[in-house]
Amino acid sequence: MSTEKIHVYFVPGLAAGKEIFRNISLPKHRYELHIIDWLIPEKKEPLSSYAKRMAAFVREPNSVLIGVSFGGVMVQEMASFLALRKLIIISSVKRRKELPTRLKVVKKTLAYKLVPTSLVLSANDLTRFAIGPKTEKRLRLYQEYLHVRDKQYLDWAIENMVCWQRKVVDPAVVHIHGDSDVVFPVKNIENSIQIPGGTHIMILNKGSVISKKIIEVIENK
Rank of each mutant, 00 (worst) to 15 (best):
N191V: 08
G197P: 07
R138T: 12
I195P: 08
L139V: 15
E190N: 03
N160Y: 08
H147K: 13
V120K: 05
R128W: 00
T127N: 14
I193C: 04
N188H: 14
T109A: 14
H147R: 06
N160A: 07
V174H: 09
T101W: 14
G207H: 11
L126I: 06
M202Q: 11
S208K: 15
Y112C: 10
D181T: 12
Y153I: 03
D125I: 09
D170K: 14
V120F: 14
Y142P: 00
N188W: 06
G178A: 05
L126R: 13
V162Q: 03
D179M: 06
V209G: 00
T135L: 02
V173M: 03
V115T: 15
E98T: 10
R149T: 11
S118Y: 09
F184G: 03
K104G: 08
D170V: 14
K206F: 04
W164I: 13
L114A: 15
E136L: 13
K113D: 14
D179L: 07
A130W: 01
E144A: 10
G178N: 07
V173G: 04
A111K: 10
L110K: 15
S180C: 14
E190D: 09
V183L: 15
A123D: 15
V148F: 06
D170C: 10
I176H: 07
R102P: 00
V209I: 15
K113L: 15
N205I: 11
M202I: 05
I189L: 11
M161I: 15
D150S: 08
